[in-house]
């Protein structure tokens, strides 16, 4: 098959992505860090590090620890704040022909709203991704994604001020991802992204202290992929809005699992640290797969999973 004939483009919340490969928030900085490695215009979308109204200092170090097939992080949402992002980082990002998505969060209800409003006004930000799932916060919002009442209240208030597409990023640290997915859709989310990191811990057995200064952190990387695929499959079965899948995607085969499970697009996180060219290689891998399989349009892959119908609980 002629590669030029391949259609990899997907639509998320009214935005056309040239391919389904995005970067995961917090793993790609503000884009500039990776602009030296490849042309960022090749990305389907670029999601920047989580932003808050004011700059945030984050947690003490060590902030990361490697674990089997994964890593724990407790960065603590350090970021430069919305104003500096718009003034200093966005101009460069605007020069790339890709969709720019601003991930954001707040410590208080008001901060969430103010941040959302500022980003909604910012020229060059195409969509917002609401992080209600960061497991590193100690100030009480932790349970926020898993508290349906709070989530409904907050999402409603944010939806009321955001005109741009609003993506809600879900936490895997919940008993039932389907419930969270349905709730987010009901509250007006245009798309969902999942999963964020799974809360974990690792210990230095000689010193008998946690490896992270924050004691616990978020687990990412290949170790969480099976959990992520399952959750993406479950969520995409119960909502009609698009699902963006992520969690341990290292190569195009991993990406395909998510797409087949029902994800309309995928995001690459920890893999960027391992190989700065991961996203580009995944795009190329998807093209190769489609050529080999004689598939002209990526739509024919998305949600194409054929499940067994004799499955019971494990």
């Amino acid at each position: 098959m002629n590669d030029n004939a391949l259609n990899l483009s997907v639509e998320i919340a009214g935005l056309r992505l040239k391919n389904p490969v995005m970067t995961a928030s917090g793993t790609f900085g503000y884009g500039e860090e990776y602009a030296e490695f490849f042309d960022l215009s090749r990305l389907g979308a670029l999601v920047v590090k989580g932003l808050s109204l004011r700059p945030k200092r984050g947690n003490p170090t060590p902030r990361i620890a490697e674990t089997a097939s994964g890593m724990l992080n407790a960065i603590g949402l350090q970021n430069i704040g919305v104003e500096e992002f718009i003034g200093k980082k966005l101009p460069l990002l605007r020069s790339f022909d890709t969709v720019i998505i601003a991930n954001f969060f707040g410590d208080t209800f008001e901060e969430f709203i103010d941040t959302a409003e500022a980003l909604d006004r910012a020229e060059g930000v195409h969509a917002l991704e609401l992080n209600i799932s960061c497991p590193n916060k100690q100030q009480g919002w932790v349970s926020f994604g898993s508290d349906p009442g709070l989530m409904r209240e907050l999402l409603g208030a944010i939806r009321a001020v955001v005109k741009k597409p609003l993506i809600v990023k879900l936490s895997p640290n919940t008993a039932d991802i389907k419930q969270a997915a349905v709730l987010a859709q009901e509250c007006g989310a245009d798309a969902l992204s999942l999963i964020n990191t799974l809360t974990g811990m690792a210990i230095d057995i000689r010193r008998r202290v946690p490896l992270l200064a924050n004691n616990t952190g978020g687990l990412s990387g290949p170790a969480i992929k099976p959990v992520a695929v399952r959750m993406v499959w479950e969520a995409s079965n119960v909502v009609s809005i698009p699902v963006i899948g992520m969690g341990g995607i290292m190569n195009s085969s991993d990406a395909l699992e998510f797409l087949i499970a029902g994800a309309r697009a995928i995001a690459v996180g920890t893999a960027n640290f391992v190989n700065p060219l991961s996203t580009v290689q995944i795009i190329e891998g998807l093209e190769r797969f489609m050529s080999e399989e004689g598939i002209g349009d990526i739509q024919d892959i998305i949600g194409s999973l054929r499940t067994y119908n004799n499955a019971r609980s494990c």
Partner: peptide
């Protein structure tokens, strides 16, 4: 401790 080495992950502050 470092993950990315290029300033993207904010682990090495």
């Amino acid at each position: 401790h470092m993950a990315c080495g290029v300033g993207a992950c904010l682990s090495c502050v």
